[in-house]
Write a protein that binds this DNA or RNA. Structure first.
Lengths: 147, 147
DNA sequence: TGCCTTTCGTTACCATGATAACTAAAGAGC
DNA sequence: GCTCTTTAGTTATCATGGTAACGAAAGGCA
């Protein structure tokens, strides 16, 4: 993402609001601030993950597998659904995670089309190493920039 | 961006909170909801812009030039600064906008290194065509999904 | 059984973000 | 006026998002 550095100026919105009435200036401001704050938070998170050899998506893949321990692994499609990301992106991301030894992929014994994706020990270790800092960044995100 | 489809479950946060105390569960939830909402809004905006032959960045380039009418055009660097995006991305985006006839780029008479980027008539026309729908989407963004 | 549709995952390709390294010109300091 | 540094913009390369189209297997149904 990204967004206008200098606060999506109230002036700008008001100027345009004059020309198009019925515009809820406050709601527009809120939406702009929402995107700006989320953008900054995502940048901080990506920088944090990069320092641990991960990306936000790689991390979230580990999370969604880990948080369903009763499921003995998820399929590629299930991961894509839970993360709301397209399947080709998941395929590529899983390949990276296998390279790094954080997950293991096996054929599904019940369906020759499907695969079962599981965390490895290293994957679980990475997750517990990264989680505290992740939550700390999320906790802190409400405090900074008055954007 | 993107994010966990099923609400970044409170259960998940609480489970991890137990292991790492001092964690502000509410603040974490807020941050997750923030990212999810922004992600969905950005997707809707990108879809809207795509339907008009633009992207969010191309649109914002037009906006930042348009909102400084006293400045007779901006430099590439100034646009990059205002949008908080790297210069190579701006170079590429400007090339697309020139192809589409929405902006014009000339040499800066006062500095042989620099260029002056201005909106064309078509650029201003596109902007006024797209703005109402843009603000409408922003206004509406607070109403939907309880994410 | 044999076909037709659906589903699983991948491949191929495109859009858009980043950084590193480069050229050309401007500006600082002697 | 000559260097050295800084600044403007581009090029090259990479990461990560998307859609379209594909092969292989499963499933529905005559």
């Amino acid at each position: 993402m990204f967004f206008l550095r200098d606060l999506p100026s109230r002036r700008m919105v008001e100027v345009y609001a004059e020309r198009h009435d019925g515009l809820d200036v406050e709601a527009v401001r809120d939406a702009l601030v929402l995107m700006r704050r989320a953008s900054l938070l995502v940048r901080r998170l990506e920088a944090y993950f990069a320092a641990h050899g991960l990306s936000q998506l790689r991390f979230l893949v580990l999370i969604v597998i880990d948080r369903e321990p009763e499921r003995d692994g998820l399929s590629v499609t299930e991961i894509a659904e839970r993360l709301d990301v397209s399947k080709p992106v998941i395929t590529r991301t899983l390949a990276h995670l296998v390279e790094d030894g954080l997950i293991a992929i096996e054929a599904d014994p019940d369906d020759a089309r499907a695969k079962v994706v599981r965390l490895t020990e290293a994957g679980r270790a990475t997750l517990s190493e990264v989680l505290p800092g992740y939550f700390a960044l999320l906790s802190a995100s409400g405090e900074d920039e008055g954007a």
